[in-house]
Each structure stands twice: as structure tokens, then as C-alpha cells.
Write a protein that binds this DNA or RNA. Structure first.
Lengths: 359, 359
DNA sequence: CTGTTAGCGCATTCAC
DNA sequence: GTGAATGCGCTAACAG
């Protein structure tokens, strides 16, 4: 066919065809220099192409690239929201996968909304991402299975009870162990009554905390006054009231909360009531947020090992995709994978002792 | 055990050709029903296609779709980090543009790192997003211009001094006015000395606060002991020390901080030193973060009008892209656009009075 | 109403 | 070393 010199004025964004004709070479050559292929090329050719790229302001079209490569070099991440731990997780994971030449698209499910979550998942899949990472999803497992199918490897973090047909690996923080540790810290500190103040009863992360809370009590041996409270239901004030009521005049009371935010709110109520922390009430939170350190008194909390968690997620996913791992990442997987119970891997949390428990 | 290329199994993902042959129709027909086109079609045909789609587990390939459409129906957002205000902004904007049938890809620049920022921008452009939204970027204007060029409309939020050749519109929060208001609130509350404690001196958002701070002082008429401090340089403790030193025994001292986080940190130091808030020191923050409400005493702050800001950004960008606006959005633009000074639009912040200023 | 065909921008064999 | 040719999966006229 007679394909006259395609008018560059046609579409404003230049293509490799424009670059090729500007440099006086073929599009294959342009592709080769752009992708820094190992094929031998004349230095002069390279120079001409690079010059044309700059002067034309050429920018490759990744849609075309991916379509042709049948691979996107993109990963998707779904988190409940951008704040706190999840935001830090996203940022760190982005860095990690970039190291392997992948991009990470992050989507927030706007507070565990299953519909939004599903929409994002679907979109990521339509974009043919090479791999998926998600928090323990709110949506039903069945719909997820159908969504993900066999095509795209899915790694979960902080999700419990997912069948291995759906999820390749779950990289979980060991909230149960941490919770047990919290209880024992209270008891070692002289608390004569301990309370767990949770949120969203029924969610996996909450269940893990409850389980650990009870383990901690059991290991103590002697019976202790204790309770499980739902701050979502009772409200912050109601939770404190209930804790006080249940404890009678046993002091101090140890209150272990679902997260730092709840601890901070309880702390504010204690201040208002003239309840002393840590003399009357001791607090332990979770997440080690900025304000746990900056509050008065500062709040004992658990540091989230985002570095390790994202490292494991990234390394495993990369291997799953067929990417070559360096020595460090290989060792990392060898070190942790054997410890996997089923396909769930557990990472320890570190307690940061602060004033709210008298330290 | 050599891993078989999981990504290769994706080649088994069905295409419209598979669907077409399974349903016994042509690919054009499949395309028509998938996209719910207005062309008349036999109900039976639709049913057959939809059935084939389900049984085959067909999922459209958006890369191919976009390539063909020469349009991505995607927007990009770049923010310095996922936390707090920026995270809320991202979530809200995502909702807004979804309403118009667009997806929003959010990227965090990991704390104003110009290199990462530029990388994300470049990637978004390579993906041929239809529009871009960014905070006042850390990178140089020149490189941005080259990056964005004439192709993709760019809307900035909270960025000052960007030439209109680069930026179509800047939707800014009026930090200057808010800062002026903060100072006047201190003075009306009896503060005999006022201090601005900033961070990252030199950044636009900080400059705006300083400007407003000085305006507020000027409008007061009578001279007041005051100072501009850089908490990034002095540290939190150093900042408080300096404020106390400069104020002699003038009390109370009003300290207006760059954000709530800094207020909270100052509050903690006050507690340690036995300095009373608000009797000796009054505090006003910015962002109205969760902990501003939950701290003790609670901290007066400015609420960020994320709803309005994202509405304006979305409406303007949609119109710029050539999308049809509904009545509501049209009115919104008509209401605010005339007030634009140059191409910078200002939105008022609302002060939330709390205990840290004696309310 | 439904099928045919020509791109979209790029990667990737193979010949030259 | 370099360049035509083919295909990736889908959309969009244009025929029939």
C-alpha cells in the first residue's frame, strides 16, 4: 500500500514512527534504542534516535507497549484507606516493586466498602496487572475467586482464613501474639483488671486480638477480672464507664485498645474525669502512630514492621511472577517461608513501652 | 522446582474473538453489547453474548480498549503522601471522578521527593491519562512544563505562582486568610505575644501562612510582640524555648503552628514543663486532624474543605476534558470561577475553636 | 440489525 | 546493523 509520509501534525503526541522518520531509521531501530536492547547498534544511530526523541518530545505509549508485550509490569494494591499504617505500607511497597521495575497502583476502598473494593479489583484486572496485593478483603471470598481466577497471583496481608486456591500467600502481622504480650505486660505492671476495647467486632484483625488477649490471660494462670468491650457499640465514654464498672475498685486497670486512635480518645476522657494515667488506668494501643508518641502521657503501642512485611510481599510476588531475585530477597524468602503455617506467614510486632504503662 | 511462568497462563485469557465465536456472532456485535451501545440489537443476540461472557469469564483488556479509543478515561493524582488531608483529598476526588466514568490513579511522592514525583508524573503521562491533578509540586516548573507540555490538562491544588501556560487552574485553600484569622483570634483572646511555628520554610504553603500571619498583625493596629520560628530547624523543644524567651513574661502566648501535628508535639512539651494550656500558652493548628479533637486539651484548628475543593477540581477538569457537566457542577463553576485571581482560586477555611484557645 | 475491515502504537521475529 | 511484516485486543466507521 502507498503509505505516504504520515503527517506528524495528525495526532499531537509523536509516535515511534515520527521518531523513526525524524532520525532516518526504522521503527524497529527506534524501539531497540529506546529499550536499550543488547542488539549491536552503531553509536551514531543511537545518537540520532536519542536526539529525535528529545526534539520531538517523544513519550512512549505504555498501553501500546503493554498490549504488545502482553505484560504490564504493573502491580495493584488495595487498602481500606490511605491513612496511617496502610499508607505507609503502600509507600514502602511502591519503592520495593519499583526496584524490580514494576509500578504499583494503589487504590483505597474508602473504609472497607465491598462495592468500591470490588470495583477497584475489577479495574486492576482489566488493566492486566501482573500481580495483586490486598489487605484481608471485606468482600466475599467467592466473588474474589471469580474475580481473580487463576490468572493473576494474589497476595494478602493481614487476612486470615483465605483458602490457598485464591490466595498464594498471606503475610500477616501476629496480632494474636502481640495482644497476649500486651495483657502480660499489664499484669506484670500490677494491673488487677484488664480490658480489651475493640472495634468492628467480627473483622479478622479484631478476632486475632481477642484470641491473643485470651491466650495472655490463660498463660497468667491465676484468674483476673477482665472483659471484652466493643467501642464501636458502646462509644468511647461508654467503654471507659463499662471498664470502670467492671473493675470495681481494682486498680490499675489495663485497657488494651484496637488501635492508637482509640487509646488517645480514652486518654482524653480520662483527663476530663481526672482519672490518672498510668496510676489508675494503663493503656496500650496498636500501630505506633505519630500521636502515640506525641500525646501526654505518651502511649505504649506496637510498632508495625512495614519494612519487613512489604519486603516479604514484594519478594514473594516477584518470584511468583517469574522475576529473578537477588541474593538478599532469596534469603529472605528462605528464612520465612518454611515457617509458614499453611500459606499464612506471621510477623512479630515490637512493643514500644511508654508512659501510659508507667515506663 | 522451576516455576512455570504464571504470567504466561494469562495468554489463556479470553478475548472478544473467543466470545464472538462462542456466541456465534461477530466481534463488532460483542463490542456493541459490552459497551452497551445505542445501536439496535436483537435481545436474543444480547443474551447469547452475555452468556458467553460469563461462561468464558471474559474480561475486557483496557489497554487494547484505550489504545483504540485514543483515550484512557483515567486521571492521575500526585500527592506528597497518603496521610491526613491528602489521603482524604484523594479518596474524595476518586469518588467524584468516578461519577463521571473516570478512574483515578493516585501516586504518593513519598514526602515531596522531586525525583519520585517526576517519575510518577512521567508514568502517568506515558499511560496517556486524560488529565492530571497535583499538589503544588516540589519539582521545578520548567521540568514540569516539558513533562506536561500542551497535551494533558493539569490542575494544581495548593500551589502558588504557577504560570498559566503550565497549569490550567490552581484550586487553593486560603491559608493566608486563615492565618490572619488565627492571629486575630489569639489577640481577641488576650494573647500578649504571638508566634508562628512553621516547617519547611520556603514552601508555598508555609509562605502563605507567614503572609497571613503578618497581615493579621498589621490589621490589629497596635504593635504586638511576635516572631516567626522554624520548627524544622529549632526542633519542637527549641521552638517552645524560643517562644518563651521572646515573650518574656507576657502571657498568654499564642502559638500558631504549621499543622496539628506540630501543635500536638508542642502540647506534649508544655505538659512536661507544667506550662498550662490555654492559660500560659494558646495553640492553633491546621488540618483538623483526628487527634486535634482527641488530644487533651483539644486543639483549635482549621477544617480542610475537602468536599468543596475536590468538587471544584473535578468539575473544572471534566469540563476541560470536554465532558458534559450536570446542572450542579455547572453552577459550581459559575459561582467560583469569576472570583479567580489570575488562574488561582481561593477557598475559605473554617476555624474550629477548641480548648487550646480557651473555648 | 450484523459482519468486515482498517487502524491504535509498539514489540518482535525474520530476511536483507 | 537495519528494516519490512505480523500481531497484541479492541473500537469505529462502513457495508450488507
Amino acid at each position: 500500500m502507498k503509505n505516504e509520509g504520515s503527517p506528524m501534525s495528525k495526532s499531537k503526541q509523536p509516535t515511534i514512527i515520527d521518531v523513526a522518520s525524524a532520525a532516518g531509521v526504522s521503527i524497529a531501530t527506534v524501539s531497540n534504542v529506546i529499550n536499550r536492547r543488547k542488539v549491536p547498534m552503531a553509536p551514531e544511530t543511537i545518537r540520532k534516535v536519542e536526539e529525535a526523541v528529545v526534539t520531538l518530545g517523544y513519550r512512549r505509549n505504555v498501553m501500546a507497549t503493554n498490549l504488545s508485550r502482553r505484560r504490564s509490569y504493573e502491580l495493584g494494591l488495595i487498602i481500606p484507606h490511605f491513612g496511617g499504617y496502610y499508607g505507609r505500607f503502600a509507600e514502602k511497597l511502591e519503592q520495593r516493586v519499583h526496584h524490580f521495575g514494576y509500578h504499583l497502583s494503589v487504590f483505597s476502598a474508602a473504609g472497607m466498602d465491598p462495592e468500591i473494593e470490588q470495583r477497584h479489583l475489577e479495574h486492576l484486572l482489566q488493566r492486566r496487572v501482573d500481580g495483586l496485593v490486598s489487605h484481608g478483603l471485606a468482600m466475599s471470598m467467592q466473588s474474589t475467586q471469580q474475580l481473580v481466577g487463576e490468572g493473576t497471583p494474589l497476595v494478602i496481608f493481614n487476612g486470615w482464613g483465605w483458602p490457598s486456591e485464591i490466595v498464594k500467600l498471606a503475610v500477616n502481622l501476629d496480632f494474636a501474639k502481640a495482644s497476649s504480650q500486651a495483657v502480660q505486660h499489664f499484669l506484670a505492671n500490677g494491673c488487677r483488671s484488664v480490658v480489651y476495647a475493640g472495634r468492628r467486632m467480627g473483622m479478622g484483625a479484631n478476632e486475632q486480638r481477642i484470641q491473643g488477649f485470651e491466650t495472655g490471660l490463660a498463660e497468667h494462670g491465676e484468674p483476673v477480672v477482665h472483659a471484652l468491650l466493643d467501642a464501636g457499640e458502646l462509644g468511647v465514654v461508654g467503654t471507659l464507664d463499662e471498664a470502670l464498672r467492671l473493675s470495681g475498685d481494682l486498680r490499675p486497670i489495663g485497657i488494651y485498645t484496637f488501635n492508637d486512635a482509640l487509646s488517645l480518645e480514652l486518654l482524653a476522657v480520662c483527663h476530663e474525669r481526672g482519672i490518672r494515667v498510668p496510676e489508675d488506668v494503663q493503656l496500650i494501643g496498636m500501630d505506633n502512630e505519630f500521636f502515640a508518641r506525641a500525646s501526654f502521657p505518651s502511649i505504649t503501642s506496637f510498632e508495625m514492621p512495614v519494612d519487613l512485611q512489604t519486603s516479604l510481599v514484594a519478594a514473594f510476588l516477584m518470584r511468583e511472577i517469574g522475576e529473578e531475585l537477588d541474593e538478599e530477597n532469596t534469603q529472605l524468602l528462605e528464612m520465612y517461608l518454611p515457617h509458614v503455617a499453611g500459606h499464612e506467614l506471621f510477623i512479630d510486632l515490637e512493643m514500644i513501652e511508654r508512659k501510659s504503662t508507667g515506663n
